[in-house]
């Protein structure tokens, strides 16, 4: 049986990556088969980014990469050498929570909390995209982030409040 041969072992040799994660330069030494999600969780101990399916189907792993929301489970860490990554751990300003974080607490926009980091990162990316305007459009463009507890309406309420406040600012 063909397993890890000399040549494949070579392919699996860890690579050195340099990333800026939440504003801090980080060196990551990972094999090419490590997803950005596992790189964050297992190698940098940033477990705020969640794994719900590992298949790009639930959105729990959403992070912001170079200003865009991406699914970190569908991204190999080596693809993002030199990138700027923001995870849920990096969106508040010190002790001052991000408006979306505050709105999520206020609107009770989570129950178990497991999809929450992905929902919030996705909402930040969605608002910055400036495409979705109405509530219906926001619901559509947030539909890649599943919530099993059924906090959906509270999540959209929280996002709409922040989005509308920003529109009026």
């Amino acid at each position: 049986m063909e397993i890890v041969t000399k040549s494949t072992r070579n392919v699996l040799q860890p690579r050195l990556l340099s990333l800026r994660v939440n504003g801090v330069p980080r060196i990551l030494e990972v094999s090419p088969w490590v997803s950005l999600l596992d790189g964050l969780r297992d190698h940098l101990d940033l477990t705020g980014t969640k794994k719900g399916c590992d298949h790009g189907q639930c959105g729990a792993c959403t992070v912001i990469c170079d200003g865009k929301r991406i699914l970190s489970c569908l991204t190999l860490a080596v693809m993002k050498n030199g990138s700027e990554i923001t995870t849920i751990e990096g969106i508040s300003n010190g002790d001052e929570l991000h408006p979306l974080q505050k709105a999520f607490i206020e609107h009770d926009a989570f129950q178990c909390g497991y999809c929450t980091p992905g929902q919030i990162c996705s909402a930040i990316g969605m608002i910055d995209e400036k495409k979705a305007q109405t509530r219906a459009e926001v619901k559509d463009s947030m539909s890649g982030n599943l919530c099993r507890c059924g906090a959906n309406s509270n999540i959209i309420d929280a996002i709409m409040e922040v989005k509308e406040r920003r529109n009026h600012a």
Binding site: T87, I88, S92, L97, Q101, G113, T116, P117
Partner: peptide
């Protein structure tokens, strides 16, 4: 809430 929205 704070722990859940900050990823801690």
């Amino acid at each position: 809430g704070r722990a859940k929205v900050t990823g801690t």
